[in-house]
Amino acid sequence: MEVFLQQLINGLTLGSIYGLIAIGYTMVFGIIGMVNFAHGDVFMVSAFIGLICVLLLTTVLGMSSIFLILAITLVVAMLFTSLVSWTIERVAYRPLRGSFRLAPMISAIGMSIFLSNFVQVAQGPRNKPLPPMVPDVIVLMERNGYQVTLAYKQLIIMAVTALLLVGFWWLVQKTPLGRAQRACEQDRKMAALLGVNVDRTISLTFVIGAALAAVAGVMYLMYYGVVNFADGFVPGVKAFTAAVLGGIGSLPGAVLGGLLIGLIETLWSAYFSIEYKDVAAFSILVLVLIFMPQGLLGRPDVEKV
């Protein structure tokens, strides 16, 4: 019971991170029907930007207020990551819009390779550790010497995620941007005819996705305290799994999927085998796609004859 509760907390934390990345996948897929392979690497880049920012604030500027550092880092990472993602869309995807279906996918794979190798070249191949940032924990319960703890950083991750999701929900549901986005999802040509600036809407979709991934990146950095240039691929695939599990194209689905994937991963590691936790994630991806391709909250896909 105690172990389960602890894993539940850990799983929800991890799931929040996956959920934030998954939104980027699901939004881009929704609007241009493409799997943005580079999104996992954008997440990794944001973690590195966060790392640089934290180092700058602590070692150079000598700041010590951890919350201020986190807040500034979040904003900086969101800004720069958005710029990166905006540029990627502009350079690698936009020229290929409406062309051969495989071309943007190959371009995205190329971008993903480029980003991880760029970071490797610019920052070096080794793990980049940070000293623990928020080490304190709250002991929730204790029985037979086993403590169930909630770390402050876990609390921060869940709180920030929840807050962001509320803001993001408002953005998509209540603003003209959100309306334009949904219009483009339904029918891009018609939306353009009705005066929606499609290019700008798509750019903004990439930017929003990247900003959320940047939050995930900073949270990831804070949670694990270490980042590596190769850290984009596996979290990226897991977040994509989350998006698919929740029903690709569905925003609440992405978050739900993220939480589920986080839970499944931690519970699997705790009760079965930690070696096969990635196999479990990939297997879920396969099983969901085969047996439930519309996901939990997605719309079923009817074949037109």
Binding site: G110, I113, F114, N117
Partner: peptide
């Protein structure tokens, strides 16, 4: 690999 990725794009 950096150049390779770029070349793909």
């Amino acid at each position: 690999m950096l150049i390779f990725g770029l070349a793909m794009v």
